[in-house]
Design a protein around this nucleic acid. Sequence first.
RNA 1: GCGGGUAUGGCGGAAUUGGCAGACGCACAAGAUUUAGGAUCUUGCGCCGCAAGGUGUGCAGGUUCGAGUCCUGUUACCCGCACCA
Length: 806
Amino acid sequence: MTERYDPKTIEPKWQKVWLEEKTFSVREDPAKKKFYALVEFPYPSAQGLHVGHPRPYTAMDVVVRKRRMQGENVLYPMGWDAFGLPTENFAIKNHIHPAIVTKNNIDRFRSQIQALGISFDWDREVNTTDPAYYKWTQWIFLQLYKKGLAYKKEMSVNWCTGCKVVLANEEVVNGACERCGSDVVRKEKSQWMLKITEYAGRLIDDLEGLDYIERVATSQVNWIGRSHGAEITFGTTAGDEMVVYTTRPDTVFGATYMVMSPEHPYLKKWAGQLKNLDAVAAYQDEAAHKSDFERTELSKDKEKTGVRLEGVAAINPATEQEIPIYISDYVLASYGTGAIMAVPGHDERDYAFAKKFGLPIVEVVAGGDIEKEAFTDCETGVMVNSGFLDGLSVDEAKKEITDWLVRKGKGEAKTNYKLRDWVFSRQRYWGEPIPMVWCDSCGWQPISEDQLPLELPYIEDFEPTAEGDSPLARHDEWVNTTCPKCGGPGKRETDTMPQWAGSSWYFLRYCDPDNAKAIADLEKLAYWMPVDWYNGGMEHTTLHMLYSRFWHKFLFDIGVVKTKEPYMKRTSHGMILGEDGQKMSKSRGNVVNPDDVISEFGADTMRVYEMFIGDFEKTAPWNTASIKGSRRFLDRVWALQDSVSSEKGVRPQLEAPVHRTIKKVTNDVEHLKHNTAIAALMSLLNDFVAAGGPTKDEYKVLIHLLNPFAPHISEELWQRMGYGGQVAAAKWPEWDEAKTVEDTIEIVVQVNGKPRGHITAAADIGKEEALAMAKADEGIQKQLADKQIVKEIWVPGKLINFAVKG
RNA sequence: GCGGGUAUGGCGGAAUUGGCAGACGCACAAGAUUUAGGAUCUUGCGCCGCAAGGUGUGCAGGUUCGAGUCCUGUUACCCGCACCA
């Protein structure tokens, strides 16, 4: 009798072997097919790993361990996305420097991940806070700046009136500061912006040909929000022209008023002519307290608000009538031109607004009942009350009016995107310094590339300043420098980059992590890129994914990378919820720590459990009681070594189960259906037990197929059984299709779709013979008695259905 | 509000994509073994019913010989919404 299964000795033993022998380190090898598998690198938080992290790491580890055994050259790296707000806040609260917090957190994360036996190539670890890394993050920013894709703009930020700092949206709870509870207002601040909108069209179009799961692709398309319409120029009594964007230029005759966002620059310009300046200012102040999110929220019981501008009116270019202008917070400064033409008859929000303020509602598309509600159907409507457009369909009218506007010089066709430019400045310490210098005579100047990295100075007072600037602004010795252009006095930009920056290109650095001369060597990039398979959370679908695709496309345009897309395939894992079915969080107290699971059950059990828990793409609640089942499975695999017979080969009665399992596991793993693959392994184990134990060769197949899921125990058993070498280096088993099928099969017999019996027959039985057998069956005869067969359905090898009457 | 999802036993989940619903596991029950069990093994296990049988995939309709799967409508819940990452 062998000793009990003891993961506490087995697991560290093999983890040590892997690290010392560098089992999973790779080099470029043109002779082998490369496979670049990527999982999102974590933000190393002070809480350490929680059981949600290992789910994607393990799932991809299963794939790559299998691919290696199939002879592929696998790159599977890991690193740290370590700049960011939580670390800074933790540092402020606990008076420990963020650099130290970060180092400690990374060390903890690394050892926790290694304890899970994930086969990462630890020689390629990257860290976004390492100056040798962020040198290149800054370099990319400079290239963007040189190509005109980085610019400064006044943007509104969340300003805490109590703490006097800029807050992240997350730190604002119900309009108040999360920490001090003070009022949060919107405040204008000059910010660095990146022109991701310039790439909006390509970010949609190039999705074609990529293997992204559908919900990811759809989300990105919707987030970018391409729409086709027109820009129309309205005149005003103030003399200025107002340009609006609309997807419904056909309805311009029905535009009975205009609405601008409360932040619209004309309001300042028109101050002298506005007769109700106080009311306008009061409304602007009110709007400043709301986020865009709150402002666009449209619920039936929520009344529209707004103020009519007195003293200035607009002129509808189609009707040439004067129409009033309102300001209202349902119009956002950040979308379109920050002003709209309102067509209450054919837009729901305009309709609600018009009803509230008693504005005229004109029907210009017939087909609905505008007495009751806005008519928004573009398919069936016919133009009315629209001069030369009358009688046209909506589509025809769109074209006709656009041509007319162009001829009159009052508009043009325009494609618009919901996507906004990327706000790239953070008034924080723990981020990459933006490598720009302000010179009073030369304006903003990029620092010279040979000055990179521009290191983040080590300071002790990393709390934001009272003016809302980054804490770096307090350090004159760092801020004061010379202008790179004229050599005169200059001041450094004190804002830092957002955490998204470092994560927008990290997959490139893994290809050549120590390169001091370039982002990565071109040949190495050519070998490894693009990433063949990228798995990550749904929460990164629109931000991180689009930011990194944008940067990659830019680097492609300037010749740094050779592929226009970074990721060929994207899959997404579901979250692991707490035992109570709620999101794991410290405040709910439902966080499960993987260390505890490993120490009680072992890493292999943890891995098998997380892969067995359910559909990888769906959220799944943690269940401590269920883990036992996974451990019991491994215990039984371990115990089976004692009943292995000396017989060779696969016995005939086990051929079908063995070959079917090889096939199922091989296919399921590629589709991340690890749960059903494990179920198949459990079934094979049950078959072996039922057969009184496996032969040495049968057992070998089980151990081999188990290896990607439970690498430690399988490596140990492989060694004990003397199969030779390590499983990790053994060739993945193959199945013989002919051996997966049985010669006799069971066919279900239904009457009116209800199963009423079975017949057992040869696998290749024909229709007539099968029907005859079914009719001969006693139970079926009873069902068919006194009935008339109307139809006989035959699904070869599977099913017979008699449709009967009477 | 906008966008993306989900719904199957007491629980986690399977179902070759229109063909025997509940694989595999957890929990539970009975039995065996054991000084003992939070160990191991055997058997049972959707619901109603002694049974025959009936019924059953959020809810209401529909298509079909046949629907968890397709269509129409509906409800509930989850995720994201641009400075958390």
